[in-house]
Simulated scan of single mutants.
Amino acid sequence: MPLERYGVLKARPIASRQGRGRAPHYHIHAIDHGEDYRVSIAVRSAPAPSQLLYLIDDRFTHPVLARLRELPMGFCGQPSRPDAAAALDYVRGQMLTRARMSALPWDVPGPDEDFNELLHLWVGRALRDEDALIYAFGERFGPQHTPDPHFGFRPSTGIYRVHMNQGSVGAHDERDGAWQDGALMLWFPPIIEQGRTKLAERWVAVFVAFASQRWDSEPEPGMLTP
């Protein structure tokens, strides 16, 4: 069944909080022309049996990026089909394979040793670059006319289910569907000095899935390739 409010948020990140507690999520406070959003990314699976898998591709390239550049700021609802401007499908869109993903504990001693901290490294870099943008794919929640529990803005609204949304089993399979996968992408602008491009633009893609999800869908003929 397709997610009812699937889409992508294009916005400027201004703050973040690392995940803590029994069901930890990494939270990003993002804004678009004065409207506030919270992007929530799971950094640990619910208790057994599943395990969280992730991939942070810090040199991401894919044909979908050309379409993302053209999107307006703010939330854009996307129909769950391959001809949508920015609907993602890990498998049919040939974005990545399960073999490229890693499993790490969500919170372990030492610097840069877990998904929480690795994600924070890149989000922190985006926070320090006033021209950087995030593209958060998932399902929109809210608006709820109460203060956001993590950043305090009102009304509380944003993006969650920023992970693979197909191949689930058990209690979550009712939300399964093609062309509605979640992900976080960070865009860093080119660095230009004395009229010359010193460093090209950079895309960093964060993909999240659960070990229990199936990857047995076959890419459709004519789908995009990296």
Rank of each mutant, 00 (worst) to 15 (best):
P2L: 00
L3T: 08
E4H: 08
Y6H: 06
G7T: 01
G7F: 01
V8M: 12
K10R: 14
I14D: 10
I14K: 14
Q18D: 07
G19Y: 06
R20K: 12
P24A: 10
P24Q: 07
H27I: 00
H33Y: 07
E35L: 07
R38S: 10
R38Q: 14
I41G: 12
V43K: 14
R44N: 15
S45Q: 09
S45G: 11
A48L: 12
S50G: 03
L55F: 01
D57I: 01
D58V: 06
F60Y: 02
H62A: 02
L68Y: 00
L71V: 00
G74N: 05
F75P: 05
G77A: 06
D83W: 05
A85W: 11
L88Q: 12
D89W: 13
V91P: 11
V91E: 14
T97M: 12
R98E: 15
R98L: 08
M101T: 10
S102A: 15
S102Y: 08
L104I: 03
L104R: 14
P105C: 01
P105W: 10
D107Y: 08
V108H: 12
E117Q: 14
L118R: 15
L119H: 08
H120Y: 09
H120V: 02
L121N: 14
W122Y: 10
V123W: 02
V123F: 02
R128K: 14
R128T: 13
E130K: 09
L133M: 14
L133Y: 04
L133Q: 13
E139I: 00
R140G: 13
R140P: 10
R140I: 07
F141V: 04
F141Y: 15
P143F: 02
P143Q: 09
P143N: 12
Q144T: 05
P147C: 05
P149L: 02
S156H: 13
Y160G: 05
Y160D: 06
V162R: 13
Q166P: 02
G167K: 09
S168K: 12
V169E: 12
G170D: 04
H172I: 06
D173F: 00
R175T: 00
R175C: 00
D181V: 01
G182E: 11
M185L: 11
W187I: 07
F188G: 04
P189N: 11
G195A: 00
G195Y: 06
G195H: 02
K198A: 05
K198Y: 05
K198Q: 09
L199K: 15
A209R: 06
F210G: 02
Q213L: 00
W215R: 13
D216R: 11
P219D: 02
P219C: 01
T225R: 13
